[in-house]
């Protein structure tokens, strides 16, 4: 898969949650182009087109970043902060998906500009339903920042 064609960047260090999320998205035919980053550092490399992702273009951001909160190396809140503080990445929709029940995490997330904040359910079926609704909302109902017109402009600029 060309990493410039990614629809969803899934950032999670739990293999179980990654497997469940991919299964739910694919069952609904919602996303075949998912890139997985297993910690915050890898997510930042991907989003800021550096390190192993230096060939990526800022002009082709993912339509959605699904971001876990507690991760090794760099945590989700720090990833969110860097993404929303940089004009090159600020417009990328970021949804925090976490098992944290701490209200202060949610408030910090919204204050830092997260697009939405969700609590991961513990129940398998509820988790699958949640991922399905996330996919439907962010890939079908929502208008991502890079539209066909803008994509055309980006293509010309390359």
């Amino acid at each position: 898969m060309n990493s410039n064609e990614v629809e969803i960047l899934l950032v999670d260090d739990s293999q179980d949650d990654i497997d469940l999320t991919l299964h739910a998205l694919r069952a609904e035919n919602l996303a075949n182009r998912v890139f997985i980053a297993r910690d915050g550092e890898e997510a930042l490399d991907f989003l800021f087109c550096k390190g192993p992702h230096a060939e990526r273009s800022f002009e082709k951001p993912p339509k959605l970043v699904l971001l876990d909160l507690k991760m090794p190396k760099v945590d989700g809140m720090e990833v969110l902060k860097q993404v929303k503080n940089d004009p090159r990445t600020r417009t990328i929709p970021v949804v925090l998906m976490t098992s944290s029940r701490e209200e202060r995490d949610m408030v910090s997330g919204y204050n830092l500009g997260v697009n939405s904040y969700l609590q991961k359910p513990v129940d398998f079926d509820q988790f699958r339903k949640m991922v399905k609704l996330i996919g439907l909302y962010w890939l079908v109902t929502n208008q991502p920042p890079l539209t066909a017109t803008a994509a055309g402009t980006a293509k010309q600029a390359q």
Binding site: P87, R90, T91, P93, G113, N115, S116, Y137, W138, T141, N142, Q143, P144, P145, L146, T147, A150
Partner: peptide
């Protein structure tokens, strides 16, 4: 759409 996200819109629905 772009300006809305730049200003902090949580999402954009046509």
């Amino acid at each position: 759409v772009k300006r809305s996200y730049e200003l902090g819109a949580n999402c954009y629905v046509c």
